[in-house]
Amino acid sequence: MKQQPIVQFKHTTKIIGRKTIVNDLNFDVLAGEVFGFLGPNGAGKTTTIRMMVGLIKISRGDILINGHSIASQFEQAIRHVGGIVENPDLYKYLTGYQNLKHYARMVPGISKKRINEIVEQVGLKERIHDKVSSYSLGMRQRLGIAQALLHRPALLILDEPTNGLDPAGIRELRNNLKELAHQEGVAVFVSSHLLSEMQLMCDKIAVLQKGKLVSIENVQAFISKDSISRVYLEVEASQTELTKMLIADLNKTAIAGSGPNELWIQMNKDEVPELNKLLLENGVRVLSIHVQERTLEDKFLEMMEEEQ
């Protein structure tokens, strides 16, 4: 199946006052992928999402959804979008079911059966006829997801969806989103700063920093590219200088670690046997060697530091 773009950002820019909050975004979100939108607090994630759903105007550029401009063809563009913006703010004085009925009435062709189906799917069956004011945050999050999926959107936008969910709920959501994307071809756009979560959930990750896109990659490439595991070595104190020289021969730099005999090197995991062989052949007594693989979090934080 060829993946077609569901969302196309075209020089999307948002300026409020004199501040450029989102700066010239240019990328596509494809059908069938879970797309992670990562960035520290205040990066402009929510602002971008607000533009995607037409809550705020785009200052420059445009966003196309299924080929329709959200600015000039709002109704056609939004028809295929479901989402939660920021918090799952629903009508507290209505029941969960009344909330869903409310949103169902706004799109033609949503049957009672569909409402019941979605209630079952998000696991709210027992409490659906209670007032939303009595729901926990996690339950409101689930109801929020239910209203977003009610009309079978081609694009699902979730702003920090794991907020308030318990670990089981997070895993369930992760699986649901993956299934939705991979089985039903929905484009899922998720913003978060829960990095470890994104790593497990997303196929592709875009990193936003101060309103600018600083990276966009498939999640595997994102983690492994540029080598970047850390190899910790412990050798006899008398041999540290020798070790440093040997490592310099490999065109790498060994850096003194926290312990007196400890060194660490930035390198790929698959280069470790090479290193080990070299040290052995030159008579270095290696006390310990271990590889610390970088998580997405490490990479993310590094990226943020570089940008500062």
Binding site: V53, V85, E86, D89, Y91, Y103, V107, G144
Partner: peptide, 14 residues
């Protein structure tokens, strides 16, 4: 004030 305006406006209605 309740924030519900967001979900109300992201529907296919002007």
């Amino acid at each position: 004030t309740s924030g519900t305006i967001k979900l109300l406006l992201i529907r296919p209605h002007s």
